[in-house]
Design a protein around this nucleic acid. Structure first.
Lengths: 213, 213, 213, 213
DNA sequence: GATGAATGAGTATTCATTCAT
DNA sequence: CATGAATGAATACTCATTCAT
């Protein structure tokens, strides 16, 4: 009888917003951004078409929100208690976390790879918060304020220190590149694999650590 | 005034067909299959919308034709004079060719990766001529008659022989997996890179050969 | 804690009703009926969308209420102490009042002119209380019970008496028509003018009186 | 059998474009811009929805094209053989032409008045080619390069010369204003009138000429 | 072969209206 | 009384495909 409190409204909005974004991420990743229609998303989220627009200004805005959220989550995942220095144990830990993250956020990574494949869209969407080409995607990020750039920096530093340890035969640049490639390859592979191959992945990750630690 | 011979007609048709496919591949890869409209493709190919349908039954048929052609080309690229046995020199040669191929067929690979990312489309399009999950994409091809499967077989055999060479500590499956991942990572990376980084790639390829030969 | 008396409730309701109508009139006039959304109106009136429907059955009902109210106000404006006879002084007074009214009710007139411009809407909305074509809008009102018709009658009578005064060269019908046109032109002009041109208007009104008194 | 020549295509396009614009003008004027849906327009023009967009980028673009065309036509109507000087005979001729024009372009004027009634739309659409407030709409046009401004200039000059003829009692500004108002009132009135009242109009126009010539 | 006008099913988006709280 | 989340019918717009010429 009594009207809902503004806190109740807040909660409803937050929950539904999350629901929509989760559903949309799943379908964008599986079917592609264009092929996943608003009607389709609404149906699968169990709401009406119109309500989508109560939460997101447009389909594009929805996509942007999803990417932004996922990028935040990924960044937070690594940024806890990290001070820019990566010990050998931490490097190993980092690579293992990466494996977990690729599994957990599979849909997001799939979506991201799809989107980044398209040149114009790449600029349009991602330059602002991921960096034009960044993280495990293209090597070196020009803007150090972006979180992806910070992670890249930490990795670069790690390999720099390893170079000192390894002596003159060690080509730092090439090692970083190969490491990034391996990570990307690992990512891509995990997109296609079923959920069953966990032990297999374990071995591969061990080998990656062995090679680059 | 003399009518063109049927052979001349055939040639003209073939040329135009190729032109359309080239244009379409470029735009599918850069803008995505859905975003690249028939009108857009026709304009860029310098022909009319209607004529497109004289050469291809539908947009989807055009896509299929493009993939089919590219897959053939890629397969032929490796299948010449190959008898199923890969020596160490040939392995090195193979990896280097792979690098060249990724550069030459960049648009195709981009398109393929985009498409394979989408589950339903994957089944729909590729099972017939590439194999459900295959080549450098998911490891093991179930149908040995398919060309991708043959290449995979050759590689598997190579690593099998290497295992014999390396002794009991060598985990063949893991090595193959890591090798495939590295190749995929190399591929992905090359999609985003500019055309200038040739020397850089050279070093990376050398390192890959060093690791897996 | 004592419950408000029903009289207080009535007052509050009446005030809010008025507020909504004022806001709506302003926005209907400035943006057009279709372009002014319920959400927009509710926001500007400082109430919720839902509450709008507590006061008005529908958007159309709101429009109707606004027009009805404004028409009443306009009619009352002229109908006080008037007995159907217009002396020359009263005619002058009438024209000057018209000028004031156009300024005061600018939003209403704007809205009315917009609506009347559209044929179907005209019938639909106005026949009932203004008369199919009436007041200063199309000349002669068929139903003498409607207030607009009464005003028109008073004016017609005035010009009739003037005709007697002026002699045979005076074309009454034409003069009435021209007078109504001039009034309409004055009205239209005032819709576009800024609020500053009061003195200018004064002169024009003087001239109108001079011509038609 | 043989394909249509580009000239044939040109003709088809021109005709259909005109048909669409004519239909749209009629419906925009009668029902209002918002109420006249694309589907409605297409049906009445006897074509498909989709074809509308082959000819006009958007509903708004269609509106713009209509206004632009009508403004051009109106301007041309007066600009033939005119040198900026208006003799008394020409003034009379001008007013009579105005009457004809209002009848011929009734839909356009209706549409224009509706649109100009809405503040934001006014700026948005018309400033560029009619002038912020111009022609017979708000008096004086600031940009003399605009055609509406030129006509206004000619009229102003005419009344200036008349002032010299009439002596000190003649208030030029007021006369111009009243003349413009009368014209507008005449216009508005003609929007509501049926097509039958031609002789009536004749008399009114005669009286207008008598008053302002 | 070749053209582009024409179609219509499909898609994103809007907005008056309802209703649980 | 009051709120704003929720609905769905309607609307502008797109685009693969067809077809008369």
């Amino acid at each position: 009888m009594s009207p809902r409190t503004s806190k109740q409204f807040q909660e409803i909005r937050e929950e539904k917003r999350t629901l929509i974004m989760d559903t949309a991420l799943e379908h964008f990743a599986r079917e592609g951004y264009h092929a996943a229609t608003i009607t389709h998303l609404a149906t699968h989220a169990g709401i009406s078409k119109g309500l989508m627009y109560n939460y997101f200004e447009s389909k594009e805005a929805l996509l942007r929100a999803i990417i932004q959220r996922s990028v935040s989550e990924v960044m937070n995942y690594f940024d806890t208690d990290r001070d820019g220095f990566l010990s050998e144990e931490e490097f190993e830990f980092f690579v293992r976390k990466l494996g977990v993250l690729l599994k957990q956020k599979r849909d997001f990574w799939r979506l991201l790879f799809q989107i980044l494949m398209q040149e114009e869209v790449r600029e349009h969407f991602l330059s602002s918060f991921v960096g034009a080409g960044s993280l495990d995607l293209s090597g070196i990020d020009p803007d150090p304020k972006l979180p992806a750039a910070r992670i890249m920096k930490v990795i670069t530093d790690y390999f720099g220190r390893k170079a000192a340890r390894m002596g003159p035969g060690y080509d730092t640049i090439t090692e970083i590149k190969l490491f990034m490639m391996t990570i990307k390859g690992f990512a891509i592979t995990s997109f296609y694999a079923g959920d069953s191959e966990t032990e297999e992945n374990e071995k591969t990750i061990n080998r990656i650590i062995e090679l680059f630690k």
